[in-house]
Amino acid sequence: MLTQDTTQTQYYTWQNYRCAYEVYNPTNTPSGAPLLLVHPIGVGLSRQFWQRFIREFYNQGHQNQIYNPDLIGCGDSDMPAIPSTPEFEAQQLQFFIQNIIQKPVILVVQGALFPVAVELYQKVPDLIAGMVLSGPPTWSLISKDRPKWRQNLAWSIFSSLFGNLFYRYARTEKFLRNFSTKRLFASSDKVDSEWLNTLQKGASNMASRYAVFSFLAGFWRQDYRSKVAVIQKPVLAVMGEVASSIAKEGEQEKANERLAEYLACLPQAQGIKIPGRNVLPYESTAEFVKAMSSFVKL
């Protein structure tokens, strides 16, 4: 069971941006390092992605505090018309840890936001107690640099009228259902009304497109191998049994191969596979929480 500090979303200011977050506490005395949840970026995605996980985490009896922020451009945070990068998002979370949480955290990171965790570790290694990676990206996407000109060109196209029209289509139920079924979930039955309604509500503000376009432009696709290799904290990589790549590159990579790449590069890593595909905290919530049960007692 849990209690929420307030029924109202809380806010802080960073670089003149208004940033939203929630804090959750167990009904008993908190124990273990607090969790800092890092939500995925995509059409309609925000901190609301983690609601099923939070309920299940406390239902299974865990006592860690949970901090659940919205990244700039998502949810209830400000949505400036700027290209976001992992460096920028890591700076936001650095401020959040240092000024709001004020103690070391366990990062729980969904999918291709792993580069944000890597950049954050570079900034405040002493404030990272460990990391849980949920379906991290195909290794080939974060082990080689993508030309800056390609990223900038993609951003300019997406931020044009074309991008505006594309986003209007991308937030329709038809597109969201098809994309979720083909790319995110192992079982189409799990693409339910709660998921689709949350995405449509999250994408109702057209300004939410800028964070999505930053992701699609590939600013997160760089060679992170050297930075990953110096992460001297425990890391748990949780991979879906039918994990797939959301990009054409790496589509043939199997879950076992991806997991092996991460375990080979991360100095203190362990890995596990569970049922599901790419959005494990939502599709396979109970299994995901169980997989990290021992780890969060750091």
Rank of each mutant, 00 (worst) to 15 (best):
T3N: 08
Q8N: 15
Q10W: 00
N16L: 06
C19Y: 00
A20W: 03
N25F: 03
T27S: 05
A33Y: 15
V38C: 09
S46H: 05
E56T: 13
G61K: 09
Q65I: 02
Q65D: 05
D70I: 12
G75Y: 06
E87F: 01
E87A: 10
F88C: 13
F88D: 15
E89T: 15
Q91A: 13
L93M: 12
Q94F: 00
Q94S: 11
Q98G: 04
L107I: 02
Q110M: 08
L120M: 14
L120A: 10
Q122C: 08
Q122S: 14
K123M: 15
K123R: 15
S134F: 04
P136A: 03
P137K: 03
S143H: 03
P147E: 06
K148D: 15
W149N: 14
N152M: 12
L153F: 14
A154C: 11
W155P: 01
W155V: 00
I157Q: 11
G163F: 00
F166W: 11
R168K: 12
A170M: 10
A170D: 05
T172C: 06
F175I: 14
N178E: 10
R183T: 06
R183E: 11
L196M: 05
L196T: 06
L196P: 04
N197H: 02
A203S: 07
M206W: 01
L216Y: 04
G218L: 02
V228L: 15
Q232Y: 01
V235K: 05
E241P: 00
E241S: 04
S244K: 12
A247G: 01
E253W: 01
L263R: 10
A264R: 13
P267V: 01
G271W: 01
I272Y: 01
I272V: 15
G276C: 00
R277S: 11
V279L: 10
S284G: 00
F288H: 02
F288N: 00
M292H: 05
S294K: 13
S294W: 05
F295Y: 11
K297C: 07
K297L: 08
L298Q: 15
